[in-house]
């Protein structure tokens, strides 16, 4: 049961997102309409503080649980894939107000609609897997 720590971290993360309203459809609508600072403050704050952690990882000030240096995996490169894939995800996010982690968190709030979203997300990932070799990067 070495993975139990991830379960506890998942519970913590879900509670944080829920309590700061970062799973609310309205909060994302407001963000994309630039009518509130709320989500920008949350995401911006997370990025800035994470960037400090990343520097501490880079210079070995924080090592992982096994004593190894922490190196974030490089993201796959590809101009079309990241911009176009990102835009498709943004469309789904903007309409449903859900990004990936909140899809799972929302199950606790609105079970059936969240199950429909999750089914869609699995279908979407499945379609991607089927045609990924034919898509431009």
């Amino acid at each position: 049961m070495k993975n139990i720590k991830f379960l506890i971290l998942g519970i913590f993360f879900a509670i944080v997102l829920s309590k700061v309203q970062a799973i609310s459809w309205y909060r994302f609508y407001e963000m994309f309409k630039f009518q509130s600072f709320h989500m920008f403050g949350i995401i911006g704050g997370a990025v800035v503080i994470s960037a400090i952690f990343m520097q501490l990882f880079k210079y070995g000030k924080i090592k992982d649980i096994h004593g190894n240096k922490i190196v974030p995996k490089p993201k796959k490169k590809g101009f079309i894939s990241t911009i176009f894939g990102g835009t498709l995800f943004g469309l789904g996010w903007g309409i449903s107000g859900a990004c990936a982690a909140p899809v799972f968190v929302i199950l606790g709030f609105e079970l059936i609609p969240a199950l429909i979203l999750l089914t869609g997300a699995l279908l979407g990932a499945f379609f991607y897997g089927l045609i990924s070799k034919k898509l431009p990067n």
């Binding site: 990241t82 176009f84 498709l88 943004g90 789904g92 869609g120 279908l123 979407g124 379609f127």
Partner: peptide, 12 residues
């Protein structure tokens, strides 16, 4: 929306 989320996140 779900399909766009699943497809888009994997493509990106």
């Amino acid at each position: 929306s779900g399909i766009l989320i699943g497809f888009g996140t994997r493509y990106a």
